[in-house]
Amino acid sequence: MIEELREKVKKLLAGGDVELVIGWEKGSQPLSSTPVFIDSPEEADRLVFDSTCGNNPAVYSTKDARRLVKAGKKVGVVVKGCDARSLSLYVAEKQVKRDNIVIIGVPCRGVLDSDKVEELAGGREVLEYSEQDGKITVRGKDLDLTFDAKDVLSASCLACIYPDAKEYDIFIGEARDGKPNKEQNAAIDEFEKLSSEERWKRMEEIYSKCIRCYACRNVCPSCYCNECFVDQNDPQWIGKTPEITDTMIFHIIRNLHVAGRCVECGACERACPMGLDLLLLNRKAAREVEERFGYVTGIDSGEKPAMADFREDEKQNFIMG
């Protein structure tokens, strides 16, 4: 698979079809891959793709780096299913011209939650990592463990519906169609069974761990505002300390800003250095958007994003009669 990807990328670059390809290369840590920018065919052999490729490379097409949009050059992006949805969203939101990107889909089996791997390793440092046929092996000093990839997948992947790109130019292998996933709403259904008080308590538990480093926001493909509302200081809307209400307002408002735009890639949760459960709210908002407006983010780049659209005869049962 990886050889095919490298060959395709080499051809694209050599033929001048793209100026740059964004993908992943092996990271310096055993459980990490890191985004890489390939601009010549010789470099293409650096590309990798496995369950450690947790970043959403679409981010680099709108973030400060702006290597992609620079001078409107044509750029290739190697994408998992969720990353492809981000690109479709960008096209729908007119952040990227469809003609300027070449979407290269790769078959995704889900990505790791390194916290889960570390938990299984029981405190022993993972020095080597390999995967084959849905099995993952980690090695280190006094450590040689093999387990099912399913046991350590990111929460977003366990609930994934579209593992492979829906809109793409090239696909390595055969793209699978989206399929229903009964895990998708499991966490929110479970949460909704709790009383209002218990829910609030859980939320406080989750967000009291936040250190306000904004890693979640900065790796989020849907968070591309030039200036985030938390960075505004005239007026300053929310306090900057990790005080619980300020922290929660940051997360809730960020969540509303990405409602109907979140592709549930889970990059935020994997980026969080404090291990916050960030997907719960995201998933809830996505379900509300889908149920009320019949909109799923990033599936059709021709469709108007839900929160920028309306219908006159919409359900309004939440409004006082």
């Binding site: 306000r212 306090g239 900057k240």
Partner: peptide, 26 residues
């Protein structure tokens, strides 16, 4: 070198020597 950096503050906030601070009145 900075191409992939997304400019979050995770490194600075877990860093044991980073000490820049802001002062806020609430």
């Amino acid at each position: 070198m900075s191409a992939k950096c997304v400019n979050c503050g995770a490194c600075a906030f877990v860093c044991s020597t980073c000490h820049c601070f802001d002062v806020q009145d609430e």
